[in-house]
Design a binder for these strands. Structure first.
Lengths: 262, 262
DNA sequence: CGACATGTTGAAGCGGTTCAAGTAGGGTGG
DNA sequence: CCACCCTACTTGAACCGCTTCAACATGTCG
């Protein structure tokens, strides 16, 4: 089971009560004054409408963004002009940290629905993280979390057949909704079939076929974007378990067949 | 062309002269005293022999490691027991930062040849980065670099046919060797065909066939692990250019066909 | 309502895997 | 030093998972 990435709703305090920055400010138990400091650098901005860009590849890197509501996809463009979707971002997640080293955004972010975000000017955030205890660690931790996620996705793309990929996607979504206090068995997809296919490295038609197949198998009930999970267990069996560490890990990598052991 | 990830050899100073920690300590122009501080937390350890683990999935996270010489692969295990190689690490690179959020290693690291590393106890490193100007930013920057790399690899796995994947791999290797002052046209692979296949999400046989195909096309000369690149341009044409930002990026993602523009 | 985007379904084709067999290093022990 | 073995690698041929192409259905929005 992945570690909870945000804090329970009832633990949220004062200012950020109406804000989805849980993940960013809460986990290290912020003092009142520190919370003020954080609040002071946050820029509110008008919602990003469906299809609008929050930022684009190559934009100068000035801020990171915390999703308050709605959802966005990030994607890069390959040289042949087609896009590759990198990830889906839900409320409570921080986006844009991947631009730190290049000082410009390395992917574009587009809203999948009307989406509101908080803008955090990065320089001020970085400065603040030298002051506020735990903030530095938290930023580093968030990035490490993102690396873990990406590695998991790489494994999915490299190793799994298409049905397992879709199952992984759905299980992951379910978990994330559950963590946010929503139903983990019934939700609406904010991504189109096209986007899902792209994210999972397959053809749209395949996604379509898999949804009907899953439905015929009694795993799901699908109606357009509405998903109802009927048999979570089987889906979970199919999904890639990377990132789920448990006690007896030593036996997991016992047969490392590749380049020799001495 | 990816940004240079390490500093030119003649810019290296004093203590770390014999060390490949360029990337970690150099880019922000360390003061003499700060360099001492950094040196003081570094643990030297005996070389890791080929096939030995530097760390394993699930190991408690205590340190990050800078590769001084040699090379390592990192990999996770999927639930079916097979491994998925995540990346190859060459001298000058820092490994293990992905363990920050979970506090245990999320992948295993195994030496591909006799490899020497410097161990940096993470807690002390994090503490130090509150003191040494620029170190915090550098750590964040390194992680952002890793995210960029992973995203690039995701794109390769999701979109490219096998020949382009291998070309991408070789071009990437060539660049990294060049940056390190080695020949970018002639080098030895430290990975086995098996490992390469695994990393690129394909079958060993395919890698083998592609090498002979590339050779027949006059792109390469291959002899076992020794690679000589004969036509870099064509390989470069095949390779995925993600992460290579340039001035006219706005036209790159003009036709974003997926979920609507307003 | 018509037009266009999005989603579904079927049938053909192919890229890459899998299976099988054979070759070539590299190390070990006699 | 060679015979041996084991592993890494290569090559061929059959198969199949998924894509592609094409046609149709369903929503959605001006």
């Amino acid at each position: 089971m992945p570690k909870n990435r945000i804090v329970k709703l009832d633990e949220i305090r004062s200012r950020c009560q109406s804000c989805s920055l849980f993940e960013l400010c809460m986990p290290m138990g912020l003092a009142e004054g520190d919370l003020d400091k954080l609040d002071s650098i946050i820029k509110r901005r008008r919602p990003v409408e469906k299809g609008e860009y929050l930022y684009r590849v190559g934009d100068p890197f000035a801020s990171v963004y915390a999703v308050r509501s709605g959802s966005l996809k990030t994607f890069t463009s390959t040289r042949d002009g087609r896009d590759q979707i990198i990830s889906l971002h839900l409320p409570g997640e921080l986006m844009g940290l991947d631009a730190i080293s290049s000082n410009q955004h390395i992917c574009s972010a587009m809203a999948l629905e009307t989406t509101s975000v908080c803008e955090l000017p990065y320089e001020r955030l970085e400065a603040l993280s030298l002051e506020i205890p735990g903030l530095q660690h938290h930023l580093l931790s968030l990035m490490s979390e993102e690396i873990r996620h990406d590695q998991c996705h790489m494994t999915i793309l490299a190793r799994l057949p298409v049905d397992n990929r879709l199952a992984s996607f759905l299980v992951n979504l379910a978990e994330r909704y559950r963590t946010r206090g929503f139903s983990s068995t019934e939700f609406n997809l904010s991504m189109s079939r096209n986007d899902i296919a792209n994210l999972l490295g397959m053809a749209v038609e395949t996604v379509s076929r898999l949804f009907t197949q899953f439905q015929e198998q009694g795993l799901l009930q699908v109606e357009r974007k509405h998903i109802k999970i009927l048999n979570y267990d089987i889906l979970h069996t199919m999904h890639n378990r990377c990132g789920e560490l448990d006690a007896n890990d030593e036996e997991a990598d016992k047969d490392n067949s590749s380049s020799s052991s001495p």
